[in-house]
Amino acid sequence: MVDWSRARDLSTAMLRVGVLGYGGGPAVIPLFRYEAVTRFHWLSDEEFGETLAFATALPGPVATKLSAYLGYRVLGFAGAIMAIVLNILPSSIATVILAGAFTRLYHYTVVRDMVSAVIPVITVMLAMMAYQFGERARRGLGVPLGLALMAIAFLLLWWIHVNSAIVIVLFLLYGTAHFALVRKWRTWRGNDGGQR
């Protein structure tokens, strides 16, 4: 059975992100998060973060990967297709219609001013998301380790310009061993304390 109310929520969310998402795919991530986590409660913040990480570790546009995952979680395989189509439909239709006038459009200063005015809003939303994920890293890993890992990620991404997919895969690889290492460290410290 098709769940029509979920289908309607999914369509609303995807169209809204598709129409309001300025600044390219990655800039739209906070809008997806708002719809999926805050507005419709389809997934927890943890699951969203995890999905985002795996989406970034794979090639291709980010927005359509997130659409596919959200659609799949809400309505299965058909939902995934529906979500992708609705997410890219508004801009695709606009692209074809405006293609003839494309050189003129961008030279209308009004259009440029409108798009420019949205960029600071996107910046604020990205900053909020950075803060929330930093907060989550602090709670999960503690202040020293959390900060150290963020500093390493910052150096790799910003200074050495390592591709974000590679950085994510490196952290994922360490993650597979993280809890085992923590347990080892604790028993080692426990033994050490016992001897003293």
């Binding site: 600044g23 990655p26 800039a27 991530i29 943890e46 973060g49 995890e50 985002l52 990480a53 970034t56 960029i119 996107i122 910046t123 990205l126 900053a127 998301m129 950075a130 803060y131 994920f133 930093g134 989550r136 890293a137 999960g140 890993l141 959390g146 890992l149 963020m150 990620a153 910052f154 991404l157 910003w158 974000s164 950085v167 994510i168 952290f171 994922l172 360490y174 993650g175 597979t176 061993a177 993280h178 809890f179 085992a180």
Partner: peptide
């Protein structure tokens, strides 16, 4: 293993979002 992976991506995502913020 999966819980560790989920936890360890949080700092990377925080930094990626921070860099996007700076760029935007």
């Amino acid at each position: 293993v999966i819980r560790g992976m989920t936890l360890l991506v949080q700092p990377v995502i925080a930094v990626m979002m921070l860099l996007l913020t700076i760029q935007m």
